[in-house]
């Protein structure tokens, strides 16, 4: 039996009087794509926010690759190898693709105390390569992200996560507000995570999308996990019923 890459043990989260996560325990296996579904307010966003370091837990334990971790910010999670791609994508539209690829992790020359001159050549070269690796064809790393379509932006975000050798990629509703063709493309990216030995956590409230590209479905409702099955052992009706 392989050791889970992420182990969540009895996680609780309270927000000003609301019990958002009630004793959630979950094991995520390496190299699987886990679909996390649930209605608004079911606790799935809270769970992934804690995993990605943007929120802190009230109690419970998280183990990453067998070691207890305590993420104090998104940077801690990224350094550990957990990268999150958000619904309203983590890109700055007024900046170029190359600059977006490296926000917060810029390669610098002549650095001192963490500040330094950008290595723009390396940024351009590496972003071209990273984008080509996810089979996305863009004219130039200097194009503004604001000029890309929603699907292309998600592609760049995924390319970024891969470039930084993420072990776990959390995708928070990446297909929202996308046209059908674009959605297909993003789902394609998610499916390809398997081949790249990346573990994926795919959050969506579109059950069709989840069934299309995930190996395992976890459903949440009212702050608890109410269903946890391999895709082949369940069907859409059963998932709909528990939600």
């Amino acid at each position: 039996m392989t050791e889970p890459i992420i182990q969540v043990r009895s996680l609780h989260k309270w927000y000003s009087g609301v019990h958002a996560l009630k004793d959630v325990s979950l094991d995520v296996l390496p190299n699987e794509i886990l679909g996390l579904v649930g209605d608004n307010g079911a606790g799935k966003s809270t769970l992934i926010n804690i995993l990605s370091g943007t929120q802190t837990r009230t109690s419970g334990e998280i183990l990453f690759e067998g070691r207890a971790v305590d993420f104090r910010g998104p940077r801690d999670a990224m350094n550990a190898g957990i990268e999150t791609i958000y619904q309203y994508n983590s890109m700055v539209p007024t900046m170029s693709i190359a600059r977006n690829m490296f926000i917060g992790r810029e390669p610098v020359k002549y650095g001192l105390f963490g500040f330094g001159m950008l290595d723009t050549k390396r940024m351009a070269d590496e972003s071209v390569k990273a984008i080509a690796d996810v089979d996305l064809h863009l004219r130039s790393p200097d194009a503004l992200v604001g000029e890309l379509s929603g699907g292309q932006r998600q592609g760049v975000a995924i390319a970024r996560a891969m470039h930084f050798k993420s072990k776990v990629m959390i995708l928070d509703e990446p297909t929202n507000h996308l046209a059908v063709k674009e959605t297909e493309k993003v789902l394609g990216f998610v499916k390809s995570l398997n081949d790249l030995s990346i573990t994926g956590i795919f959050i969506s409230h579109n059950i069709h999308h989840v069934f299309e590209c995930c190996d395992r479905i976890v459903a949440m409702a009212r702050g608890e996990i109410v269903l946890d099955r391999r895709v082949e052992d369940t069907n859409m009706d059963e998932v709909m019923d528990v939600l």
């Binding site: 990605s52 958000y86 983590s90 890109m91």
Partner: peptide, 9 residues
Amino acid sequence: FLPAAQSMG
């Protein structure tokens, strides 16, 4: 885009 900057740490 502040949320993106924050989410990138």
